[in-house]
Amino acid sequence: MVSGMPANAQPDEQGPSATQEWMVGMSRAVPIVVGYVPVGLAYGVLAQKAGLSPLNTMLMSLVVFAGASQFIAVGLFATGAPAWSVIVTTLVVNLRHMLMSAALSPYLKRWRPGELAAFAFQLTDETFATHSQDLSLGAIRKTRAFAIHVTAQASWVLGTWLGLVTGQRITDVRPLALDYALPSMFIALLVLQIRDRVQVLVALLAGMVAVGFLLAGIEHWGVIAATLVGATIGVGVERWIKMRSPGP
C-alpha cells in the first residue's frame, strides 16, 4: 500500500556527492532545455513585437516562469487588456500546478520552509514531470531537484534573451524536431510512471478528458478536470478490485 513508502529514503549526504547529483539533475533536464530554448526564444520575439520592453520581457521569464501563460499574457498586453484580466487569466492557467505541488508534497518531508519556497518557485509542468521519475525512490532528492529546476529556468531565460537579441524565431526547429523534445519526454515519463493496469486506465481517462476540454475550447481547465476525474476513478477502481478479491 501507499503508506509502505519510506518516509525518507536517504538524505543527500549519504548518497552520491553533491557534484554527482548536480550532474544527474542537469542531465535529466536536457530534454527540457532542448524544448525550452526555442519556445523561450519565440516568447522573447513575440513579447518584443507586442511592445513589452526588453526589461519586462526578461522579467516575466525570471519571476513568472510559466510558458503557456507568458504567451497568453503577451497577447493580452498587445490588445491593451486590463491588468486584472491578465492576472486572473494567469491564475486560471496556472491553477493546475496546485495538483502537482500537492502530489509532490509527501516526498518533500523534512525540507526547510525556505527550501520548499525555492523549490515551488520553479515548479512547471516539465520539472514536475521529471520529478515523477524519482517518486518510486520514496523521496525527492534535494540537490538533484534543484539542479533540474535551475537548469530548466536558466534555459528558459536564455531562450528569452536569444529572442530579444536575435529578433527572430528559430526557423529550423522542424528539421531537427526540436518541437518534439517535450512531447517525447512526456511519453517516456508517462511510460516510466505506469506500474499497473489501474494506472493505465487513469492515464487513458485523464488524457481523453483533457482532449475533450481542448475540443470544447476550455483547455485551461482541462488538466485540472482530467486529473480530478482520473485520480478519483483510479482510487475507486483500486478499492473495487480489493473488495472483489480480498488478499491474503
Binding site: 493546475r96 512531447p183 488524457g207 482530467a226 482520473g230
Partner: peptide, 12 residues
Amino acid sequence: YVPAAVLAALLF
C-alpha cells in the same frame, strides 16, 4: 494517481 493523470492530460 495524480502524476499519471497529469502527465497524460498534458500529453494527449
